[in-house]
Simulated scan of single mutants.
Amino acid sequence: MRRMKRVRRDRRWGRLMKVRLSRRSLLLGMMVSLFIWVAGCSASQPFGLLAALQANDTSQDGGTGQSAVSPETTDPSVSPSPQPDDSPSAESSPDPSPNPTEGPDGPPLEGTPSPDSGQSPPPTKPPAPSVSPPSTDRPNASDGPKPTGSPTSPTNPTSPTSTTSPTKPPGPTRPPADGKPSMENKTVAITFDDGPDYRYTPAILDILKENGVKATFFVVGTQVKREPQVLERIVKEGHAIGNHTFDHKDLTKLSKAQILKQMKDTDALIKQTVGFTPTMFRAPYGAVSSAVKQVMAEQKRQLVGWTVDTRDWAGTSPADMIAHISKETKPGGIILMHSFGSKHIAGTVEALPEIIAALKQKGYSFVTADKLV
């Protein structure tokens, strides 16, 4: 029985202690919350309370900016003390200028008391959010009244003119030859060797005329002598011509004098037919030696090679020629074809319209070879 009574007493005492502790904890929590709330309110607007007190003191003192002092504590022999450093104007209006009567641009401000008057300057603006000292090379933007009409203001009010030169606009882009910006520099030259002849060359000229394409013909002297009228048509229709030796000899196997004779004999026939001597020269088989290069330099000739060889003279099918040209042609390329010299040139005539169409579809424009060397 005693043990049961002791247990009951302990339980009642434990419940009582829990209630007391709960009440004390609740009271303590309320006091802490109240303290935090009061501290937060006091810290949230410290400048607002000080500004309100200062405004009240200013209105009682007649707007001079002096702090009101009770008659019991005023000492006539002591000059009024300046505003404390923690006032809004002291924090937000530091003036690096040695003369406190000068504004941002130099002249005195209206209503500013002289430094000998013993009075502190009146506040001229609300407190600024930043209290960092102004830059020494220009006045702080917070020294003067803030504009209200526009959200933006000049970054340097003391400088009437800007020292930064305006950015020069980019110049106009040079338009490409075909008028399409994406096709700039996509040019190609089609060349025909070994002509002229009376069968394939006229057919090639018809196709070029129909498609509005200018080409280059490297002619052989013996063929010019046989078909002068075809050469005349080539020149008349605006195509370019070049010298391809007199009888298609391999120049690397000839002496310098023989190379020069091959060139001069063909020049004479061309000039006799069309009235001028061409400046372009193509060596048969593309075979070039140091002697050939020396003769070209001495005669001021353009030695023209190629970048795409169709091998049409060997019997390449039209389909293979079209595919090869479409794959291998690059901007500035020179395509080698023939207008005479083999029975397989019929395939060249057959493939030419589709070759032109394929290159145009890729954005190429056609020029003569002298424009690319």
Rank of each mutant, 00 (worst) to 15 (best):
Gly118Cys: 07
Asp137Pro: 00
Thr101Ala: 14
Val78Cys: 06
Thr155Ser: 14
Ser87Cys: 06
Ser97Lys: 14
Pro129Cys: 01
Gly144Glu: 13
Ser150Met: 05
Glu110Ser: 09
Ser132His: 11
Ser93Arg: 15
Thr161His: 12
Asp137Cys: 06
Ala128Gly: 06
Arg138Tyr: 10
Pro98Gln: 05
Pro94Trp: 08
Lys125Asn: 14
Ser93Tyr: 10
Val131Leu: 02
Ser153Ala: 15
Pro76His: 02
Thr148Ile: 14
Thr101Trp: 14
Pro94Ser: 15
Asn99Pro: 08
Pro82Thr: 12
Pro145Tyr: 02
Arg138Gly: 10
Val131Trp: 11
Asp143Ser: 09
Gly149Asp: 04
Pro100Lys: 06
Ser130Pro: 05
Pro123Ser: 15
Ser92His: 06
Asn140Asp: 15
Pro123His: 05
Arg138Asp: 09
Thr148Arg: 06
Pro121Lys: 00
Gln119Pro: 01
Thr158Met: 02
Pro84Cys: 04
Leu109Ala: 14
Pro160Ile: 03
Ser92Pro: 06
Asn99Val: 14
Pro139Asp: 06
Thr158Ile: 15
Glu102Cys: 13
Asp143Gly: 03
Pro121Gly: 04
Pro88Trp: 12
Ala128Gln: 02
Thr112Tyr: 03
Asp95Gln: 01
Thr101Gly: 14
Gly149Arg: 04
Pro154Lys: 02
Pro122Leu: 13
Asp85His: 07
Pro151Glu: 06
Pro80Lys: 03
Pro115Arg: 03
Ser87Val: 00
Pro113Val: 01
Pro147Glu: 04
Thr161Ile: 04
Asn140Arg: 08
Glu110Asn: 05
Pro107Phe: 06
Asp95Phe: 08
Pro154Gly: 03
Pro122Lys: 01
Asp85Gly: 09
Asp85Trp: 09
Asp95Cys: 08
Pro76Thr: 12
Lys146Ala: 11
Pro145Lys: 05
Ser92Ala: 07
Pro104Thr: 14
Pro94Gly: 07
Pro151Ile: 07
Lys125Gly: 14
Ser117Asp: 11
Ser135Asn: 08
Ser130Tyr: 05
Ser81Ile: 09
Ser142Gly: 07
Pro80Glu: 12
Ser87Asn: 07
Lys146Asn: 05
Thr152Asp: 15
Ser117Lys: 11
Pro145Arg: 12
Pro133Trp: 01
Pro98Thr: 00
Ser135Met: 03
Asn140Cys: 03
Glu110Arg: 00
Pro127Trp: 03
Ser81Gln: 11
Ala141Glu: 11
Pro133Ser: 01
Ser135Pro: 04
Ala141Ser: 11
Ala141Lys: 08
Pro145Ile: 04
Asn156Arg: 08
Asp95Arg: 01
Pro134Asn: 04
Asp85Phe: 10
Gly111Ala: 04
Ala90Pro: 08
Pro129Glu: 01
Thr112Gln: 13
Gly118Glu: 01
Ser135Phe: 03
Ser117Val: 00
